[in-house]
Amino acid sequence: MSGLSDSLVIARRNLIRMSRIPEMILFGVIQPVMFVVLFSFVFGGSMTVGGTTDPVVYREFLMAGIFAQTVTFATAGAGAGIADDMHKGLIDRFRSLPMARGAVLTGRTLADLVQTALTVVVLTIVALLVGWRIHEGVPKALGAFGLLLLLGYAFSWIGALIGLSVRTPEAATSGGLIWLFPVTFISIAFVDSAQMASWLQPIAEWNPFSATVQACRVLFGNPGVSTSEAWPMQHPVWASILWSVLIVVVFRTLSVRKYRRADG
């Protein structure tokens, strides 16, 4: 199947590029580490999780949120990378070659997935250093990491569509980031939805992002698991998988269609 092999050739190309611009990877890693440190030590003592304001409990609660936020930031990278590609002569070369149409985009999202995985590894080490632990065994924890990477992969397709829709890579970077703030904050990532205004609660609980955060807390055995009656909060693993697959299907279809029609 040429689709897969072409995608792998393009993924390889993007990984080589990333390795030659190491500062991009470095910033990608520093950002979530900074969030961990800021949230744990600035908010740590003032947040109530499971009826206690113990900062250690908050740190354990926080990590699933930070992990999920980190993987979604791949959106901005994918968007900027694709916007950059679309405005260079190289895209004409790709479009004039007998290669699979979606491969330029799939290759980019796969490369971003590798980068995201790398960031998650570093972040896990930092998390262990600040006192976060897994309590349900390694297989479940690996399942949680799998859900996180799937979420990151799904979000990179949203980034791809943004990258194809804007005129400059700079616009793709900021456009790829701003909407992530409401998505990641109107969720159960940093605060229990029970503490939110009642009209916000259902939004936070049905947020695709929250499903993965909840699933991670359950699988890691971390405190602060939401007790909401909402279906995604009761079945977070299934909700996380369904949301991510749905996002991939929808945004991949839209992106590939847009790429094919890009009569630049």
Partner: peptide, 18 residues
């Protein structure tokens, strides 16, 4: 239309595979 972060050799191999 070449990838400026790839070497000459990498560019040509990539195009060949595509």
């Amino acid at each position: 239309a070449v990838d400026e972060y790839l070497t000459g050799r990498e560019n040509l191999r990539m195009v060949g595979q595509l």
